[in-house]
Design a protein around this nucleic acid. Structure first.
Lengths: 231, 231
DNA sequence: GCGCCAGTTTGCGCCAGCGCAAATCGCCTG
DNA sequence: CAGGCGATTTGCGCTGGCGCAAACTGGCGC
């Protein structure tokens, strides 16, 4: 059963491509479902495929030799990921884990040279995504190097809300389960410190939170916290 | 006066290209000299060109809104840099400064689409470099998030030595002037802490150092320091 | 050859945030 | 609806490394 082009037509990555072209691209793809907390690919494994996330949220995690984990980023719907091969790498540099039940499109790496040369828009879009990621990662280096923990955690929450925020009556909620431990692994601190910070912010009415759930109720004050030393 | 193809023939980026192709690539380039401590391009400036370093060493620096600096990386001979435009960015994300007198080749961005499609090897090599940089940057995030200052400084020195080390009778020396402040800006600490660490290491015979100069005399013990908590 | 200055060293006090431990709380399962 | 488990909260003590300040030094320019 061939995939219907409507599933990718709306994605910015494929913008400007015609129906026949979309069909041609989809001919090499298959759609796969991943249950919550299962791995799409693993760090160090041979890179055989690249992916586009159709539905869900994915956590990209790197593990140090001594077993400590760091969350490199979250992938949102419509993003391309696992493009190691296009960047000349033979293995994936990180593990991708479904944060919720996910649906992804999968292409074998072998089709990339052909696909990218036939559809320069696609290649350009992919490299633009990579460029943006490089930029983000460098911004994180700067944050880790120059900012205090409180600023870093505030920034991380704001980034998550911006990327995946869902409006509720209480405020804007992060759209997938995220633990204190996860936030700690994004910001280079411990779950204890994150917990203390969130508690303090909740007391001051800036957020409300629960088990694996965070809602920002006063984004403005959180921005102040992220930027300055007051708030 | 046209540039001679011999200046780039030996670079891995242009590997596998014939004389006519090299000449064709060089036709669009010009060679420029930058004096020590001058800027090749500035953060936030419109990206008009991309570059290849022919001789010297370049420091890539990002500045935070409040004026703190972080060294993103050092560029060595033969590397391509300033490729913002190929990644879909309109401005440079960082400032590039000649750490010593440098010679660079400069191409206007306008020729990139043509050049990269005519010479896929060149495009692939460029994206491979970008991929490696993304990898490096993520590795730095992990280091900043999980390691102590001592480990980070040791790792930074080892990376510099590996990238640009020059053998002397005392050991392996970093091939360009580098201050305690520079090392601090690479590792997210202060020049004071770096100075204390280097003094301690010098006392233990692991390095010898002077004004803007570091020589590793016992790389093995420095590796131990970078990995564990002893040494 | 001398003076100046950027780069470096070092002492001291302090505190942000980690590590450890224990209690508590929600949620899911049976 | 009871039990159990993973997530969260919170107290306490400690310390790595920062901030400040002052002294020192190697090299370059005059």
């Amino acid at each position: 059963m061939p995939l219907d082009r409507s599933i990718i037509a709306r994605l910015s990555l494929f913008e400007g491509l015609g129906p026949a072209e979309l069909d041609s691209i989809l001919r090499d793809a298959r759609s796969v479902r991943f249950a919550k907390e299962t791995a799409i690919f693993e760090q160090e494994a041979e890179a055989r495929s690249f992916y586009v996330l159709l539905a869900g949220h994915i956590r990209v995690v790197r593990t140090t030799p001594d077993g400590r984990q760091v969350i490199a980023r979250y992938i949102s719907e419509g993003e391309i990921f696992g493009v190691a091969a296009a960047l000349g790498r033979l293995t994936y540099p990180a593990t991708a884990i479904a944060a919720v039940d996910c649906v992804v499109l999968v292409w074998p790496n072998a089709v990339w040279p052909d696909l990218s040369s036939r559809f320069p828009v696609l290649a350009a879009g992919t490299f633009k995504t990579v460029g943006a990621r490089l930029q983000d990662t460098q911004a994180r280096v700067m944050e880790l190097a120059t900012e205090q923990v409180e600023q870093r955690v505030a920034s991380a929450l704001l980034r998550l809300v911006k990327q995946t925020g869902r409006k509720t009556d209480a405020g804007i909620e992060i759209d997938f389960p995220i633990s204190r431990q996860d936030i700690a692994e994004m910001t280079g601190t411990t779950l204890h410190t994150v917990s203390r910070l969130l508690s303090a912010w909740e007391e001051r009415g800036i957020i409300v939170s629960g088990r694996q759930r965070v809602t920002i109720t006063d984004a403005h004050r959180l921005v102040m916290l992220a930027e300055h030393r007051d708030g």
